[in-house]
Simulated assay, not measured.
Amino acid sequence: MLLWPFLTLLFPLSRALEWTDIIGLRDKDGIIEVTESNYQTLSKGIRNFYSVLYLTASKPNSEGVYCDICDQFEANVRKTSAAILEQVSFEVSTEIFFFKLDVSEVPSLLKEMPLKAIPHLLVYPPSPNDDNFAWHSNQFYQYQIGKHSVEDPVHFADFLAKIFNVFIRIKPDFNYEEFLQYFILCLVIFFVFKKKVLPLIPHKARFFSMLFSLSLILLSITGFKFTQINGIPLLAKDKDGNIMFFSGGMGWQFGIEIFTVSAMYLVMGGCCVGMILLSQCSKLNSNVTNFATLALVGILTYMFAYFLSCFKIKNPGYPYTF
């Protein structure tokens, strides 16, 4: 019995898996390929780092069905792993390891962890005191992989950033098709403005001076400097992945609010100016003038009601708050 402590020192029950043992297995994106030969070594053992395990399949299942989104989501995993290696310090990067396991090539996993669907993304927290740690038995965080998560790599990166408590910036891929669409649209708008609209403006210098001044006023009253100083992103999404146009509370705002509020101000201001100009126009028939005025009043009323509904998102108690 007295020899037992010495025997456990010489022959430990569970060997700790250190980052120095596996860091050389990382590929250029920071992914470690799990094979049948190294599965037992990588899947078990005490560890002081996070294990991000991506389960995929390169071959069809027993029913002959291929995994359609496996390769697509793997691109997001690789992009996020590469971003962590590039952006965080070496000390932090050794606390997070990404593993890719192809169940078609590693049958040992399926014997220990029966799976009904592929792909899966599992995150195992560090287990410095767990002698029996194993992928098939320990608790994990699971990321729900779907169509939205495949199309939006930022959503997956945000999931990991909250777990690791780090900042991850994902560089979007250059979309040539989207660029071509916007280029053609801007080209058409520029051509129409130059050929059709610009000749109708008699005093161009005064017009563009007024336009510039109006732009500065809108930027000032809609909080552009606030978002710039605080580094607030243009778009934010809720837990369901939907864009949030207005933040709750009067002390904060998203970047998109600058443009939405500016658009509402422009429409309401345009309606007021339009009614003034209609009252001074003697060339139009009175019935046309009355109809146009009523239309502008209706638009102004609707826009003001819409503006109030947006304002109540930020201040739900309006107008009864003190």
Rank of each mutant, 00 (worst) to 15 (best):
L2V: 05
P5F: 07
L7H: 12
L7E: 06
L13P: 02
R15H: 14
A16R: 09
A16L: 07
D21V: 01
I23L: 12
G24W: 00
I32D: 05
I32P: 05
E33T: 14
Q40R: 13
S43R: 01
K44T: 12
K44M: 10
I46G: 04
R47Y: 01
F49H: 11
Y50D: 06
Y50C: 05
Y50R: 03
S51L: 09
L53G: 02
Y54I: 09
T56A: 06
T56P: 01
A57W: 14
K59W: 03
S62N: 05
C70S: 03
Q72F: 07
F73I: 02
A75Y: 03
R78K: 15
V88W: 00
F90W: 09
E91D: 11
S93M: 11
T94P: 00
T94H: 12
K100A: 12
L101V: 09
D102L: 08
D102V: 10
V103A: 04
V106A: 06
L110V: 02
E112N: 04
L115D: 00
H120S: 10
L121S: 14
L122C: 10
P125L: 12
P126M: 06
P126K: 09
P128Y: 00
P128Q: 04
N129S: 02
D130V: 09
W135S: 06
Q139L: 14
Q139W: 07
I145S: 11
V150H: 08
H155D: 14
F156S: 01
F156A: 05
D158L: 05
D158N: 12
N165F: 04
N165C: 00
F167T: 10
F167V: 07
I168V: 07
I170D: 00
I170E: 01
D173K: 12
D173P: 03
Y176Q: 14
E177Q: 11
E177R: 13
E178Y: 04
E178M: 05
L180H: 08
L180M: 10
Q181M: 08
Q181R: 11
C186P: 00
C186W: 08
V188Y: 02
I189C: 08
F190N: 04
F191K: 11
F191W: 02
K196D: 03
V197G: 01
V197L: 15
L198V: 13
L198W: 09
L198C: 04
L200Y: 03
I201S: 02
H203Y: 09
R206S: 10
F207E: 05
F207V: 08
S209F: 04
L219G: 12
I221E: 07
T222I: 10
F224V: 08
K225N: 01
F226H: 15
G231H: 06
I232K: 10
L235I: 07
D238V: 00
I243Y: 13
F245K: 13
F245I: 05
G249L: 06
G249Q: 03
M250T: 14
Q253S: 10
F254T: 04
G255M: 12
E257I: 11
T260M: 15
V261A: 07
A263D: 06
M268H: 04
C272D: 00
V273M: 03
I276W: 00
S279Y: 07
Q280A: 11
K283M: 13
S286A: 08
T289R: 15
F291L: 15
A292C: 15
T301K: 09
M303R: 11
F304V: 13
F304E: 08
Y306R: 08
L308Q: 12
C310H: 11
F311E: 03
K314M: 15
P316D: 03
P316N: 00
G317D: 13
T321G: 09
